[in-house]
């Protein structure tokens, strides 16, 4: 997406897309490696950025490395285009690249996201970039990095399974909500970033390229298009997604999207709204047109 001609043409005195060309090149190489080994965490040299680590610097570095002038970018935070994190990242990228920004999922060529996948399935011409706080799914059962790497290398995942078993014995169900561990390409256990269970099935055999990056932990990993992604589940304890018990979005009336629950403390009532702002808005517009 980047060509040599764009190199020097920066904004506000910075190189195009802020990072220097060597940094972008390294990150792109790491991305290629990550795509070649689906679900494997590739270490990379995480760069300093004008936002603090832990605020989406991983996703941001991928976006900055692969964005080109003809790209159209959408940035969401928990499905919403207008929350602080999304707005800041969008403004920053705009100021160092000048590329077009959108909130329309279908128009975007790149989607950078925190903790959600848009409801509308992405196409083969789109890339989704996840901001990842904790890239290591085995960290819950093993504190040592050397040991978790060995476990991945040998596919020695019994302790993860044991953790799920103990969860079922104690709670009657697997108690992991977001960050539900998945099996990628029947080889690596991967942390899908804190997306809800609802979004896990969108990763399976997706048409788009999924890139994940943790800036603080310095890891890049990927799920290429049409790759098998399965949540960890037992034969008699199947994975299940969030159940909204028949509630619908109060704005657009959608019954098949992931809903945010808000509580009106004054009135003591619960309200449900689509988490994906763009999806909700399009539903509303369609309804008005009819």
């Amino acid at each position: 997406m980047n060509s040599a001609a764009e190199k020097i043409d920066g904004k506000n005195g910075y190189n195009f897309a802020f990072l220097d060309e060597n940094a972008k090149k390294e990150i792109r190489r790491r991305i290629l490696k990550a795509i070649s080994i689906p679900g494997y965490q590739v270490p990379f040299g995480s760069r300093e950025l004008p936002i603090a680590r832990g605020w989406g610097t991983g996703g941001l570095q991928i976006t900055l490395s692969i964005i080109g002038k003809s790209d159209i970018l959408k940035v969401i935070d928990q499905g919403c285009d207008d929350s602080v994190n999304a707005v800041n990242i969008r403004r920053f990228i705009k100021s160092v690249t000048g590329v077009e920004m959108t909130t329309d999922t279908e128009r975007a060529t790149l989607v950078q996201t925190r903790h959600r996948i848009p409801e509308k399935p992405l196409t083969k011409d789109q890339v989704i970039i996840f901001q990842v706080p904790f890239p290591e799914p085995l960290r819950t059962v093993e504190p040592s990095e050397a040991e978790t790497r060995r476990m991945h290398a040998e596919a020695d995942y019994s302790r993860m399974w044991l953790y799920l078993y103990e969860d079922i014995v104690k709670c009657g169900e697997i108690s992991i909500g977001a960050r539900y561990p998945v099996f990628v390409n029947n080889r690596y256990i991967m942390d899908p970033s804190p997306i809800p269970r609802w979004d896990i099935e969108k990763l399976n055999n997706s048409e788009c390229l999924n890139l994940f990056c943790a800036g603080r932990e310095k890891r890049i990993y990927a799920i290429p298009p049409r790759t098998s992604v399965k949540p960890l589940e037992f034969e008699d304890f199947r994975f299940r997604i969030e159940d909204f018990k028949g509630n619908k979005c109060e704005k657009c009336g959608s019954a098949n999207s992931y809903l945010d629950e808000t509580i009106d403390e004054a009135a003591g009532t619960r309200h449900y709204y689509c988490s994906d702002a763009d999806y909700c808005e399009k539903n509303l517009n369609n309804a008005v047109r009819k």
Partner: peptide, 15 residues
């Protein structure tokens, strides 16, 4: 769980 771990290692997935 200790006993089950051994079976999990051998790819049993039926609780």
């Amino acid at each position: 769980g200790n006993i089950v771990e051994r079976m999990l290692m051998a790819n049993n997935r039926d609780i």
